[in-house]
Amino acid sequence: MIDLVIEQRRRDLGGFEVGRVLPYKGGRMVGPFIFFDHMGPAEFTAGFPRSVDVRPHPHIGLSTLSYLFDGEITHRDSTGVTQPIRPGEVNWMTAGRGITHSERFEALRAHGGRMNGIQAWVALPVEAEETDPAFFHHAAESLPTYEADGLRARLIAGEGFGARSPVKTYSPLVYAHWSLAAGARAQIPAEYSQRAAYVAQGSVEVDGRAFGYGQMLILTAGQPVVVTATEPAIVMVLGGEPVGERFIEWNFVASTKARIEQAKADWRAGRMKLPDADDQEFIPLPEPPPPAPPMS
């Protein structure tokens, strides 16, 4: 039932840590999901420096999907959108041929508090890679929910569990948030060829094995899987159909290396528009380290 277990790798982003799960060795994806970061959990004290914010930066060839358990982030992008996101809501940003955006922690800076959430990147199919950039916000109450027998579930994006999310997607996928009481059981059906379950809190049992916080379970194709919470748990269920090989470098995703090189050149030359409401700074393109000197 489980092909692989991926452990999150903690990374300091200059003020708070994230747990990176995808991409994994060999460029492993889960359906179209190519990137998966657990932001936090982190506790902030009011007045922390602006250097913790994510300054304007570019994307191509993907949609970003931001979802919070705790906290608040203010999104600004080059389509003119400014949109806070709060727990249970969805910010879905389609980069397509190119978009820039920032993520600011203004509410947390003013009041302090906890930050905890997931940012996922969904690779666009080839025919949509150069689509126009767009942004969509969905309130928590607009998303399908289900509650019974110790399970509270919200369908964040895609289609699954007999429901369809209003979030616009470009290829077949499912993404759901489960909150399980201790002893609660829920089944992940076998309707997609690639599926995974990420334990965002607590611990669970699958196929007689115990798993806990920060682990992503890559599930065997073609078999339904039952997840049992051994203590109160949060599980993110994700899956979908593959979109083909993708290259990823910095914030760029594309089906060809040439397209990534063009995006790098465009950003380096200042040809990608910054957000109107946040155009005073940006993250420069990381340059490759210089070659090591020859050994004497």
Rank of each mutant, 00 (worst) to 15 (best):
G96I: 14
T94G: 08
M93H: 10
D132M: 15
G160F: 04
I85F: 12
E281Y: 10
L238C: 07
I34T: 14
D70H: 06
T131V: 11
E191H: 08
L217E: 08
W267D: 03
A157C: 11
R10A: 11
W250R: 02
S63Y: 13
A184L: 00
V199C: 04
E205I: 01
P166D: 12
G160T: 09
N116D: 15
R10G: 10
H177C: 04
K25I: 05
D207L: 02
F44D: 13
M115L: 15
N91R: 14
E43S: 14
V225M: 06
P58N: 09
E287A: 14
D53A: 08
S193K: 05
V18T: 01
V206W: 01
D276A: 10
L124T: 12
I2N: 00
E287Q: 14
P284N: 10
R154L: 00
A107P: 12
V30E: 02
H59S: 11
R268P: 00
D149A: 15
R259D: 08
T94R: 12
V253K: 10
P290V: 02
E106V: 08
D276Q: 07
G239H: 06
H177N: 09
R185G: 08
P125F: 14
R185N: 05
A210C: 03
H38M: 13
G71F: 02
S102V: 11
G27F: 09
V52K: 05
Y213R: 05
G117F: 10
Y24C: 11
A196G: 05
D276S: 07
P294N: 11
G40T: 02
A120D: 13
W250G: 00
L217H: 04
P125I: 14
P289A: 13
K25H: 12
P286R: 05
M115N: 15
A210M: 05
R268L: 02
L13T: 09
R209I: 00
E130M: 15
I99W: 07
T228C: 06
V21D: 01
S171F: 05
D207R: 06
E245W: 04
P87Y: 00
Q201T: 03
E249Y: 11
F161D: 01
L151R: 15
E245A: 08
E205G: 08
P56Q: 11
F136P: 12
H177S: 09
D207G: 10
I2T: 02
V225K: 03
F136G: 15
E281W: 09
M236Y: 07
A269M: 03
M236H: 07
R185H: 05
P293E: 07
E159H: 04
P289W: 03
Y175V: 02
S171P: 03
V30I: 15
M39T: 12
A176W: 00
Q262S: 06
A269N: 09
S255R: 06
Y192R: 01
Y198A: 03
L285K: 09
F252D: 00
G240S: 06
G208C: 00
F16H: 09
D132K: 14
A157K: 13
A233F: 02
I118R: 10
P293C: 06
A263W: 05
A134E: 13
K257A: 08
E241D: 12
G14W: 01
A269K: 08
T64C: 11
T131D: 14
A263Q: 05
A153G: 04
L180A: 01
V122C: 13
S296L: 13
P56W: 14
L68A: 08
L151N: 12
